[in-house]
Amino acid sequence: METAARAVLAILLLIAAAAKLRSRAELPELLGAYGIPGLARRPAAIALILVEAFVAVLLLVGAPGSAFAALALGAVFVLAAATARLRGHRRVRCGCFGAAERPWSWILARALGFTVLAGVAAFGGELDLASPTRDTLVLAALAILAFAVLVLGVLVLALYRHVGVLSLRIAPSAALELEGEGPPVGTPAPALAGLTRRGAELVAFFAEDCRLCRDLAPGVRALEREGVAVRIAYEAQEGPAFSRWNVPGAPFVVHIVDGVVAAKGLVNTLEQLDGLVATGRARKAHAAA
């Protein structure tokens, strides 16, 4: 049983490594969803491809400890999937079997399945299911317990995120709008790639190392379902835009209607974000009256 599990694991890892190698130009960007900092993404992408290929070779040749290496890799995959959800991503790409986005739950289920299979490869040779001994039963119980702890850890992370969202909701609702910060209200929005200047648009200025920005990202993206086009600009990638828009710091949000600045301000909570959008809509309605 463990031999078959090793073979399947090796094939899966080789396919995943080959797919990542083909899409190596996009892989660093994909790793951003899993919390990898910008400067570390390219080295992490190269390391991931090499580790997957190396572990696959070890599994194929039956090297001692290779199954445990696959088990550790599976735990990393599960943690990465949980991290992506914690950062607000409902659909993510992993680059393993194509570049298409998958629901977060599918990525997690696949990672858990890989981890279970690695557990079979690591401990299957010690399990005599026909006539189980006490040691066999202890190993089986430990494997089940480890799997349960892994699942509970993912659930705790998800619960932690929801508690954080609730805490963001009960904070003060007024965004900090100062006259000398950001583009003046009522004036055309400065130049920024991706703006259509038609209808309602929201520009969020975030920083990669900003915890509040990560907390607000799901709420900002949720506005797209309400018909508001969302454009997120990160300081490390679009520093000149921060200067053109006179952004004092992150997270800073600007609400634009038909290319004109309707509201702006430093936003620290979801309530402040909702309040800023409501202010922009009210100003636009008042101007049209």
Rank of each mutant, 00 (worst) to 15 (best):
V253A: 03
I46P: 00
M1T: 07
A288H: 11
R231K: 14
R231G: 11
A19L: 06
S23M: 09
A18R: 14
V51F: 08
G113C: 02
P251R: 03
F54K: 00
T3Y: 01
T196S: 14
C213L: 10
V260W: 09
P64G: 07
A222Y: 03
A33F: 04
V253C: 04
S105R: 13
A82P: 02
T136Y: 02
L86S: 10
L159W: 14
A204K: 05
T115W: 09
E52N: 02
R6L: 01
A111L: 05
A236H: 12
V120L: 03
L48D: 11
T187K: 14
V156G: 01
G194A: 01
R197V: 06
E208W: 08
L152D: 08
L137H: 01
A17S: 15
A17W: 08
A217C: 02
A67V: 06
L12T: 10
D274W: 15
M1L: 04
G227M: 05
L166G: 09
A250W: 06
V228M: 05
A40H: 05
H162R: 15
P183Q: 09
V92T: 14
V277S: 10
A288G: 12
S173W: 13
A82W: 01
Q272W: 06
R41P: 00
P132T: 00
G259C: 10
V138Y: 06
E226F: 13
K264F: 08
A193H: 12
L48A: 13
D128L: 02
D215A: 15
E26G: 06
L14H: 14
W104F: 13
I107A: 15
F97K: 13
V55P: 00
V149P: 01
T3F: 04
A191D: 15
H162P: 07
G219R: 08
R197K: 14
L195D: 12
P218N: 03
A250V: 07
S131A: 08
A25C: 01
V149N: 01
